[in-house]
Design a protein around this nucleic acid. Sequence first.
DNA 1: GTGGTCTAGACCACC
DNA 2: GTGGTCTAGACCACG
Lengths: 123, 123, 123, 123
Amino acid sequence: MIGFEDFIMADGMPIYLQILLYIKRGAAAGAIVDGDELPSRRMLSALLGVNPNTVQKAYKMLEDEGLIASHAGAKSLMVLDETTIARLKKELLADEVRAMARSFRQMGLSKEEAVALLDAYWE
Amino acid sequence: MIGFEDFIMADGMPIYLQILLYIKRGAAAGAIVDGDELPSRRMLSALLGVNPNTVQKAYKMLEDEGLIASHAGAKSLMVLDETTIARLKKELLADEVRAMARSFRQMGLSKEEAVALLDAYWE
Amino acid sequence: MIGFEDFIMADGMPIYLQILLYIKRGAAAGAIVDGDELPSRRMLSALLGVNPNTVQKAYKMLEDEGLIASHAGAKSLMVLDETTIARLKKELLADEVRAMARSFRQMGLSKEEAVALLDAYWE
Amino acid sequence: MIGFEDFIMADGMPIYLQILLYIKRGAAAGAIVDGDELPSRRMLSALLGVNPNTVQKAYKMLEDEGLIASHAGAKSLMVLDETTIARLKKELLADEVRAMARSFRQMGLSKEEAVALLDAYWE
DNA sequence: GTGGTCTAGACCACC
DNA sequence: GTGGTCTAGACCACG
């Protein structure tokens, strides 16, 4: 069962996208593997304090992308092969790092300052 | 006059929030200082390719927060004192860096790998 | 034993309502009479290719309405008196025919064209 | 502007489908023609006493089918060519008449009785 | 219990 | 004002 212990809700990004991203990141990191069981909509929505439909939307998009297999009345399972994982890794990393670099530059930080900050806030 | 050269539109976040954030980041970084002049609603909307109402919404929120002073028929000016700048710095930097660090950890990266990536994607 | 030979599943209406309606129509028409035996939940669900719960829901509503008498461990029987039959006839016939007439008029058909079509598609 | 004077809400069928059907029927009948203006979501939802999203769903499906052209900030217009109208006519009539014939047969009516009823309830 | 759909209300971007 | 999207809650069919 995939855990959502690390999940922290942010503002400014749709909740369903945050859930979707969380799962993709976990898959890219290897924390979520092929065959892993997803929490049910009800369970996860209760855990996150959102509407079941919001979770449903994230799951549906992942299913459309082929990362989840759902069957009515049964648990939803992750479907991950090596190619997919590699693709996720590549996509996610590039996007995140670029966004991060852009933010830092907008705040007028030098690369050294940015690295120092990242180091400071790491844990 | 505040420039929007670095501004890059992202999706998943409302545009007016991105504009608001861009200005706050600039203020936190010192790139935008007290008394700086803001582009007119019309000019900025044309520059960014968005609707004037969207710019108006961002300006209105900044004004409500006291970061902008608008006078009818006159330019809008930034209102920034030391306390405000310090607050922005703290809020923006801490929040963003923490979010980034969390993203990287979720993707299974070590601190060293994250720093290396940031370095690679800096420009 | 009530047969479901004519039953054809439609979509856009909940299945349990279709089952309920089928039985009511039969009762209104006289094809189903007082004391008739209903197929067991399991048998009917197999015949229609739906979940037993769905059949159960239809039976439960009929029972709540007093049209069915169920006894634990025994067959379910239809309970139909003259008053009930007359009521069903009136409700079902009037509603359905009015809805159909409205549909045809919305499609710009004259009464004569509608009658001709009904004749053509009757079997 | 397309009017919804004849629209009468029924139960058992999703509202958005009823709206969709109403428009298709009007197009098939020639009451709605190419270039006709649709009521806005807000206006129609207020008129019908439903949520704007319910109207939106019907409009969206019609747009996906190519029967409506929508542009943000502008009115939605009907897009109807001869081929489309002919197709609608054919599809709608066959479906409706078949459903109607089935209902009547389930109620144990003969064709003559059905025709008589339709005649009686026509207006 | 599970996943899927329909209706609802609020918000966003645009004209 | 317009259309489009996100979140919410209830209901349906199924195991």
